[in-house]
Simulated assay, not measured.
Amino acid sequence: MNSLKTKPAKTASPKVVLLAAAADIVLILAFAAIGRDAHHREEPVLGVLLTAWPFLAGAAAGWIAARAWRRPLSVLRAGVPVWLGSLVGGMLLRALTAQTVVLPFVIVATLALAAFLVGYRLLIAGGAKLRNK
C-alpha cells in the first residue's frame, strides 16, 4: 500500500513566495502606472490603483489556480498562469465594471503583462542555469 502514496509537493520558502508575490504586485502596478502616464490621466495614485485592481485580482486568481506558492519562480507553473489570470481576469473584471476593454488595450496588456510577469521569471531561470554551468 505504501507504493500508492504520493510525495507532497515541495513548497518554496515563505521568503521566496513573498518576494515573488510582491514582484507580481509591483509589476502590475507599474503596468497600470505606465499606461496611465502615457494617456496623461489625472489622480496618479488613486488612478493607478483603479486601473490595477482588476489585474491584481486576476493575478491572485492565477496564483490560487496554479498553486503558485509551491514554485513561485517557475515560468510554466507560476509565471504563465499568473500572467493569464491577470490578463483574462483583469479584462473580465474591467468589462463587468464598465471600464474600457478595446482591442488595442488588450494587445498592449497581453504583451506588457507577459513581459513583466513571465519575463522576470525567465531571467531568474536563465541566471540559475548560468550559475549551474
Results as ranks from 00 to 15, higher is better:
residue 62 G to R: 09
residue 87 L to H: 10
residue 73 L to P: 02
residue 72 P to N: 09
residue 22 A to Q: 01
residue 132 N to L: 14
residue 55 F to D: 10
residue 70 R to E: 13
residue 80 V to P: 09
residue 75 V to Y: 05
residue 65 A to F: 15
residue 57 A to V: 14
residue 69 W to R: 11
residue 23 A to G: 13
residue 55 F to M: 12
residue 24 D to E: 14
residue 13 S to W: 05
residue 125 A to S: 09
residue 17 V to I: 14
residue 54 P to Y: 13
residue 48 V to K: 00
residue 3 S to R: 01
residue 74 S to R: 10
residue 85 G to W: 04
residue 26 V to L: 15
residue 100 T to L: 15
residue 131 R to D: 02
residue 119 G to V: 06
residue 56 L to H: 07
residue 73 L to V: 08
residue 113 L to T: 13
residue 3 S to I: 08
residue 85 G to I: 07
residue 64 I to K: 08
residue 14 P to N: 06
residue 109 A to D: 03
residue 5 K to G: 10
residue 24 D to K: 13
residue 58 G to Q: 07
residue 59 A to T: 00
residue 55 F to K: 11
residue 126 G to Q: 01
residue 22 A to S: 08
residue 94 R to K: 12
residue 111 L to V: 12
residue 20 A to H: 00
residue 118 V to T: 06
residue 64 I to W: 11
residue 44 P to N: 01
residue 117 L to F: 07
residue 89 G to Y: 12
residue 99 Q to N: 13
residue 43 E to M: 03
residue 70 R to K: 08
residue 83 W to A: 06
residue 9 A to H: 09
residue 81 P to H: 12
residue 32 A to F: 10
residue 110 T to N: 06
residue 24 D to C: 14
residue 110 T to S: 14
residue 23 A to P: 04
residue 20 A to L: 04
residue 122 L to K: 01
residue 36 R to T: 03
residue 126 G to C: 01
residue 104 P to H: 15
residue 85 G to A: 04
residue 79 G to S: 00
residue 108 V to I: 12
residue 48 V to N: 02
residue 70 R to S: 09
residue 111 L to H: 11
residue 50 L to S: 13
residue 93 L to E: 02
residue 15 K to C: 05
residue 109 A to C: 03
